[in-house]
Design a protein around this nucleic acid. Structure first.
Length: 390
RNA sequence: GUGGCCAUCGUUCAACGGCAGGACAGCGGUUUGUGGUACCGCUAACGAGGGUUCAACUCCCUCUGGCCACC
C-alpha cells in the first residue's frame, strides 16, 4: 500500500505507482469526478472503454444521498457502484465551503452553513435538514464508503482572501488534519483493518496565492501527523493542493503550484486537486504532481465542448497542442465526418459530427455520453503521452 | 349572411398616444477537489391601406385573414 516513485524523467515528470486494495494506478494519472457515485450518462463499461481506471467520489454528496446505510450493506461504494478498481473519496470540505460561499454571494441570502472549530453546520440543499460534518465524521464516512484513498477535511478559503483570513484557514486545516489523522487510526483499529488493506490518507495544503503560507501549511500538517504515535503510519500518504488553482482573473497559479510541489517529500503522493485543463495538467505533471482530477472533460462534454488532437501527438517539443470544438454549433450540422476518427472508440468513429450536433440540439443524453467519452479518452491519451514522454 | 372578439420577433404571450418587453426556438460564448438539464451575451416583430394627431403598434374607417356565437 502506498506510493512508489520509479523515476523522474528529464522533463521533471515523476513516474510512479500507487498501490491500493483495488489495484495499482500508474502515475501521473487523471481521475474523473464521479462526485455522487456516477459519471453522468456513462456506464462502467463506457468508462473502461474511455480509458478510465480510477475515479473520485465525494463524501459530502454521498452522505446526503443516498447515505451510508445502504452503501454499507453492499460492503462499500465499490459494491454499490459495481466498480472494482481504485476509488478516491474527497472529504467534502471543498463542497461545503463552496456551498456556503456561493449562496452568500449569488443571492445575498443567509449562508446555508456555519463553520465552527468542531466542524461545519449546514443545511442540506436537498431537503433543508440540519446537517453536521466534522473531521472525525468525514473520516468515518470515508471508511464506510470503503474508498482506497481518503482525504482529510480541510478549511477551503477563496484564494483572494486576506492574509489573516488565509492564516486562520491553514491553522484550522492543520488542527482538523490532526483530528482526521487520529480518527483514521481509530477507525483502522476499530474495524481491525490489516496494514496491507488500509486506505491511503492524504491531507490538503492551503495558503491561497502565497508560497510562504503554503509552506507553513505543509509543515503544520507534517508535524500534526508526526504527533500521532502509532505503528501503522506516522505520516500522510500524500498531500493535495487545495483551493481553485486560478487567481481572481482566471490566471493559472503556476508558481504557487511549482513551489508547493517542491515542498512535498519525494515518496509521497502529490495530488493537484481540481486540476484541470489539459494544458494545466501537462504543466503540473512536469512540476512533479502525480494525480489530477477535474470536472472539465465531463462537464464541458455535457455542454458540447469536445477536446481533440491536432495531429499525431499531443505533446511535441515541450509544448502541448490540441483543439476544442463546440459540437452544438451549426457549423457541424451538415458534416458527415466522424466525431473522432482514429480514437479507437467505436462510438466516436461511427457517429458523425452532424449526428452528434443533432443529439445536442435535441437535448438527447446520448450526445452528452458520446462527448464525455470523447473527452475522457482524450485525457487518457494525454496521460499516456505524459507518462511516455520521458 | 349577421353580430362580437382578435391580428405584435420563427413560435407564444406582454405593454404603451412619445426608444415595443419577456419566455421558448435560433446563433455565439463560459465552465478547473460537479448545488451546472447551468450561466452569460447576441439576433429577431407591430397583417395591408387610409384618416385623426406635433407624434399612431396604440384612437377611427376600409380591406384581408383567423376564432366564437346566432341564423
Amino acid at each position: 500500500m502506498g506510493y512508489e516513485l520509479k523515476k523522474i524523467d528529464k522533463h521533471g515528470v515523476r513516474h510512479g505507482t500507487i498501490k491500493t486494495v483495488h489495484g495499482s494506478i500508474e502515475t501521473p494519472t487523471f481521475l474523473p469526478d464521479a462526485t455522487r457515485g456516477f459519471i453522468k450518462t456513462l456506464s462502467n463499461e463506457d468508462l473502461a472503454q474511455s480509458g478510465v481506471s480510477a475515479m473520485v467520489v465525494n463524501t459530502y454528496h454521498l452522505f446526503l444521498r443516498p447515505g451510508t446505510d445502504i452503501i454499507k450493506k453492499v460492503k462499500g461504494i465499490h459494491g454499490f457502484m459495481g466498480w472494482d478498481r481504485p476509488l478516491v473519496s474527497d472529504s467534502g470540505g471543498f463542497q461545503i465551503f463552496s456551498l456556503i460561499r456561493n449562496t452568500t454571494r449569488k443571492n445575498g441570502k443567509k449562508p446555508l452553513g456555519e463553520i465552527h472549530e468542531e466542524g461545519v453546520y449546514f443545511k442540506s440543499p436537498i431537503d433543508g435538514s440540519e446537517q453536521f460534518l466534522s473531521p472525525e465524521k468525514s473520516i468515518k464516512i470515508q471508511f464506510d464508503l470503503g474508498t482506497d484513498i481518503i482525504i482529510a477535511l480541510d478549511d477551503c478559503p477563496p484564494n483572494h482572501s486576506s492574509q489573516p483570513e488565509l492564516k486562520k484557514s491553514i491553522e484550522r486545516t492543520i488542527r482538523w488534519g490532526e483530528r482526521c489523522f487520529s480518527e483514521y487510526h481509530r477507525q483502522i483499529k476499530k474495524r481491525k483493518i490489516q496494514k496491507n488493506k488500509r486506505p491511503l490518507i492524504l491531507s490538503v495544503i492551503h495558503g491561497g496565492e502565497h508560497k510562504d503560507l503554503r509552506k507553513a501549511c505543509f509543515l503544520g500538517l507534517y508535524e500534526a501527523a508526526k504527533k500521532n504515535k502509532n505503528n501503522i503510519t506516522s505520516d500522510w500518504d500524500g498531500y493535495g493542493f487545495g483551493a481553485r488553482p486560478v487567481d481572481a482573473k482566471g490566471r493559472f497559479l503556476k508558481e504557487v503550484l511549482k513551489s508547493t510541489a517542491d515542498l512535498i517529500p519525494k515518496n509521497k503522493i502529490r495530488f493537484a486537486l481540481g486540476i484541470g485543463s489539459p494544458r494545466d495538467i501537462f504543466l503540473c505533471a512536469r512540476m512533479g504532481w502525480d494525480v489530477f482530477d477535474c470536472v472539465i472533460p465531463t462537464r464541458e462534454g455535457r455542454h458540447g465542448k469536445l477536446y481533440l488532437k491536432k495531429g499525431g501527438r499531443l505533446i511535441k517539443g515541450g509544448q502541448i497542442y490540441y483543439n476544442t470544438i463546440n459540437i452544438g454549433s451549426s457549423k457541424f450540422a451538415k458534416s458527415l465526418k466522424p466525431v473522432n476518427a482514429g480514437s479507437g472508440l467505436e462510438i466516436l468513429e461511427y457517429s458523425s459530427q452532424s449526428y452528434l450536433n443533432h443529439l445536442f440540439k435535441s437535448g438527447e443524453a446520448l450526445g452528452a455520453k458520446i462527448a464525455s467519452m470523447n473527452n475522457l479518452k482524450f485525457y487518457s491519451v494525454l496521460m499516456d503521452e505524459i507518462r511516455g514522454a520521458g
